[in-house]
Design a protein around this nucleic acid. Structure first.
Length: 99
DNA sequence: CGGTTGACCAAGT
DNA sequence: GACTTGGCCAACC
Protein backbone atom coordinates (compact mmCIF):
# COMPACT_ATOMS: atom_id res chain seq x y z
CA UNK A 1 0.00 0.00 0.00
CA UNK A 2 1.57 3.23 -1.12
CA UNK A 3 1.29 6.27 1.00
CA UNK A 4 -1.17 9.01 0.26
CA UNK A 5 1.67 11.18 -0.94
CA UNK A 6 2.91 8.76 -3.56
CA UNK A 7 -0.54 8.57 -5.01
CA UNK A 8 -0.47 12.33 -5.41
CA UNK A 9 2.83 12.14 -7.20
CA UNK A 10 1.69 9.44 -9.57
CA UNK A 11 -1.24 11.50 -10.72
CA UNK A 12 0.64 14.74 -10.82
CA UNK A 13 3.51 13.31 -12.82
CA UNK A 14 1.25 12.82 -15.85
CA UNK A 15 0.35 16.49 -16.10
CA UNK A 16 1.98 17.63 -19.34
CA UNK A 17 4.14 20.70 -19.74
CA UNK A 18 2.21 23.85 -20.43
CA UNK A 19 -0.76 22.68 -18.38
CA UNK A 20 -1.67 23.00 -14.70
CA UNK A 21 -4.07 21.51 -12.20
CA UNK A 22 -5.41 22.51 -8.81
CA UNK A 23 -4.99 20.98 -5.39
CA UNK A 24 -8.68 20.32 -5.26
CA UNK A 25 -8.84 18.61 -8.64
CA UNK A 26 -5.85 16.53 -7.77
CA UNK A 27 -7.53 15.35 -4.61
CA UNK A 28 -10.70 14.71 -6.51
CA UNK A 29 -8.84 12.64 -9.08
CA UNK A 30 -7.67 10.30 -6.37
CA UNK A 31 -11.12 10.22 -4.85
CA UNK A 32 -10.51 12.13 -1.63
CA UNK A 33 -11.15 15.59 -0.27
CA UNK A 34 -7.78 16.04 1.34
CA UNK A 35 -6.64 18.96 -0.78
CA UNK A 36 -4.84 20.19 2.26
CA UNK A 37 -2.93 16.98 2.66
CA UNK A 38 -2.06 17.23 -1.02
CA UNK A 39 -0.41 20.56 -0.39
CA UNK A 40 1.57 18.92 2.37
CA UNK A 41 2.69 16.20 0.01
CA UNK A 42 3.89 18.75 -2.53
CA UNK A 43 5.88 20.58 0.08
CA UNK A 44 7.76 17.43 0.90
CA UNK A 45 7.90 16.24 -2.70
CA UNK A 46 10.94 13.92 -2.85
CA UNK A 47 10.60 13.43 -6.63
CA UNK A 48 11.49 17.03 -7.39
CA UNK A 49 12.25 17.04 -11.15
CA UNK A 50 10.17 13.98 -11.93
CA UNK A 51 6.97 15.37 -10.43
CA UNK A 52 6.02 18.85 -11.67
CA UNK A 53 4.79 20.21 -8.37
CA UNK A 54 4.96 23.74 -9.79
CA UNK A 55 2.04 22.89 -12.08
CA UNK A 56 -0.31 22.68 -9.11
CA UNK A 57 -2.17 25.85 -8.20
CA UNK A 58 -5.14 26.97 -6.13
CA UNK A 59 -8.75 26.59 -7.19
CA UNK A 60 -9.18 30.27 -7.87
CA UNK A 61 -6.27 30.35 -10.29
CA UNK A 62 -3.72 31.93 -7.98
CA UNK A 63 -0.44 30.15 -7.55
CA UNK A 64 -0.55 28.96 -3.99
CA UNK A 65 2.85 28.34 -2.50
CA UNK A 66 6.14 26.91 -3.48
CA UNK A 67 9.07 25.57 -1.48
CA UNK A 68 11.61 27.72 -3.37
CA UNK A 69 9.43 30.80 -3.53
CA UNK A 70 6.36 31.77 -5.49
CA UNK A 71 8.39 33.85 -7.90
CA UNK A 72 10.33 30.82 -8.96
CA UNK A 73 7.10 29.01 -9.60
CA UNK A 74 5.91 31.79 -11.88
CA UNK A 75 9.10 31.76 -13.87
CA UNK A 76 9.05 28.01 -14.36
CA UNK A 77 5.48 28.05 -15.57
CA UNK A 78 6.09 30.95 -17.93
CA UNK A 79 9.07 29.07 -19.30
CA UNK A 80 6.71 26.21 -20.13
CA UNK A 81 4.31 28.41 -22.03
CA UNK A 82 1.75 29.15 -19.34
CA UNK A 83 0.58 32.73 -19.31
CA UNK A 84 0.27 34.28 -15.89
CA UNK A 85 -1.84 37.37 -15.50
CA UNK A 86 -1.53 39.39 -12.32
CA UNK A 87 -0.14 36.39 -10.50
CA UNK A 88 -3.04 34.24 -11.67
CA UNK A 89 -3.61 31.58 -14.30
CA UNK A 90 -6.55 31.19 -16.66
CA UNK A 91 -7.87 27.80 -15.59
CA UNK A 92 -10.23 27.51 -18.54
CA UNK A 93 -7.20 27.48 -20.79
CA UNK A 94 -4.51 25.71 -18.84
CA UNK A 95 -6.23 23.32 -16.48
CA UNK A 96 -5.38 19.74 -17.35
CA UNK A 97 -8.26 17.32 -17.11
CA UNK A 98 -7.26 14.52 -14.79
CA UNK A 99 -8.96 11.23 -15.29
C1' DC B 1 -4.74 8.47 20.80
C1' DG B 2 -4.71 13.52 20.95
C1' DG B 3 -2.73 17.85 19.39
C1' DT B 4 -0.34 20.59 15.85
C1' DT B 5 0.75 21.79 11.14
C1' DG B 6 -0.07 23.04 6.27
C1' DA B 7 2.14 24.89 -1.03
C1' DC B 8 -6.26 24.52 0.81
C1' DC B 9 -11.43 25.94 0.19
C1' DA B 10 -15.71 28.55 0.76
C1' DA B 11 -18.33 31.86 2.82
C1' DG B 12 -18.71 35.87 5.66
C1' DT B 13 -17.27 40.62 7.27
C1' DG C 1 -9.75 43.26 -2.26
C1' DA C 2 -7.87 42.00 2.42
C1' DC C 3 -8.77 39.44 6.52
C1' DT C 4 -11.23 36.02 9.59
C1' DT C 5 -13.65 31.74 10.55
C1' DG C 6 -14.89 27.15 10.26
C1' DG C 7 -14.28 23.01 7.85
C1' DC C 8 -11.58 19.54 5.70
C1' DC C 9 -7.80 15.50 5.73
C1' DA C 10 -3.21 13.13 6.02
C1' DA C 11 1.35 13.26 8.14
C1' DC C 12 4.06 13.88 12.13
C1' DC C 13 5.33 13.99 17.17
Amino acid sequence: MKSFNERCYEILRRVPKGKVTTYKDLAKAMNTKAYRAVGNAMNKNPYAPEVPCHRVIQSDGSLGGFASGTKKKIQMLKAEGVEIINGKINLDKYRYKLR
